[in-house]
Design a protein around this nucleic acid. Structure first.
Lengths: 276, 276
DNA sequence: CGTGGTCTTGACAGACGTCAATAAGGGTGG
DNA sequence: CCACCCTTATTGACGTCTGTCAAGACCACG
């Protein structure tokens, strides 16, 4: 694990890597600078537990790259992921987890930690930060609503397709000139399954079915080529073709920040191939 | 529909009817008094639409009695209820509903409306109110987490039982001396089904099964006698018997306020009966 | 080149949603 | 006060979706 003292410069480097609607971009320059004083960049491996209910950690920070899962188990071992913390998101700010929630790294994660005490003090002082926090929480609620609605009102296949579509907002994604797009599923099947309340097997089957129908193309286990976005939206049971990028999608509201994966590298290798 | 100008007195009457953890109790006397100036008590019938996405209503207020449902439909007509607004809850404060949400009365509802403009101004002025708002939103998030987890990680039967148990926190409920309890399901089966992402038929079957096993007793369609709370908790797949009233249950955090139904009236009629 | 983990595929069973018919209330008007 | 009707709840029968189990393929890593 990599620990280092973050200079203000490094932090703003990190912040610069985040897209415009990341939390960092909202809080204003002054707050950002004051936070930087206690910030430290850290890299944690996948599956590391950052926080669970009986360990009142002082973990507050922002995810720079990678993904965290906020989850809870049922007694019979079924797991439900309540939130995917994506690059640009604040994490650990919630004190209210009295139930058995845990916060874990879903992938290797680079994050920027703040001293809890300083953070709280800063929140008390800085109205801009407080307002940003408020807006962030509103976004978090909206995201959870999307998830709940998806799980509750859509069938597994629809869920999975809907997830693929709005994953464009927070997973490494690159639109291609011909209307297609390439996405990188950097989180594992298991996590996707437990987010969408389905099974990894069903995910596989749906993926293959979509490929058979020519809507997507599976390059490898973690790279999918979207061939027909409209047909996908149709299949997801969405009102209409979800707008490619900009609005309407609650998930993208908070996270325009992407994973920062070198998505280009895999592209050339597959570029010329016919869809045979 | 009943419209009247609320005097400060009437409002505090209404507020007095709310239990301690209702939103009203949190905002402090001054804010409460200033709100009362523009408040008006109103009674709306069941199924009345209070708000939907393309009608940017100025509806802000507090539910005094009855229940609101905050919901969204899928294209195929499946509905998911995202939140039950219970007595003591603030409603309408969320501006962020760009998706096709609607807010409707699930039962006949008595509510206390505020002028949106005054309310917003008051929020800007009063720090206490703002903090209460923040806490309220945190509670709302926690409630939604509970729902999501319940839908995602529990099977239909478990969901239904879990719902029954924590409905003690927000539906008319009266604990009985012998450890039993009487609850009034003032919201219809359909709404419960769409909240828990299941069907009314399944709810019926589960109820009957629970009655066969002696865990509950169905007095009539909307009144249930809890006979064995521990066994119910077990059946719900909960870690242990959920505490009767006070803590641990996210749903009760925000709403200790109950429905205010004359629950006593039905009681004597069934009291002496053997469980045959 | 083994080994463990994740992903994929197939076979299978059962839970639960859907459809349809009946029962039970609750309200309204004669 | 009864008859009627319409909504909601209940019960039964049925089919299928999808989760589970088990085996195999595919990587990535050591």
């Amino acid at each position: 694990m990599l620990n280092e003292r973050a200079t203000a410069n490094e932090l703003s480097q990190g912040a610069a890597g985040l897209a415009t609607s990341g939390f960092c971009a909202e809080i204003g320059v002054t707050a950002c600078r004051r936070l930087a004083e206690t910030a430290q960049i850290e890299t944690v491996p996948a599956d590391k537990v950052l926080w669970h209910d009986d360990a009142p950690q002082t973990a507050v920070g922002i995810v720079l790259t990678g993904y965290l899962r906020f989850q809870r188990y049922s007694r019979e071992g079924r797991r439900q992921i309540l939130n995917l913390t994506v690059p640009g998101d604040l994490f650990g700010q919630e004190t209210e987890g009295r139930a058995g929630y845990t916060l874990e790294a879903a992938t290797e994660v680079r994050l920027c930690r703040f001293d809890r005490r300083s953070f709280d003090r800063l929140v008390a002082d800085d109205g801009t930060l407080r307002r940003a926090l408020y807006r962030f929480n509103a976004g978090r609620l909206e995201r959870l609503r999307w998830l709940t609605w998806t799980i509750g009102a859509l069938r597994p296949e629809e869920r999975i397709v809907a997830f693929l579509l709005n994953a464009r907002g927070f997973l490494p994604y690159r639109p291609l000139p011909d209307g297609a797009g390439l996405i990188s599923l950097s989180v594992g099947r298991r996590d996707i399954a437990d987010l969408l309340a389905t099974s990894v097997e069903t995910i596989c089957r749906v993926f293959k079915a979509l490929e058979r129908d020519g809507l997507i193309r599976l390059l490898d286990a973690s790279h999918i080529l979207f061939l027909d976005l409209d047909a996908l939206a149709e299949r997801a049971g969405l009102p209409h073709a979800a707008a490619p990028e900009d609005p309407a999608d609650p998930m993208t509201l908070v996270n325009a920040a992407r994973g920062g994966e070198p998505l280009v590298s895999i592209l050339p290798a597959w570029r010329g191939r016919r869809p045979d």
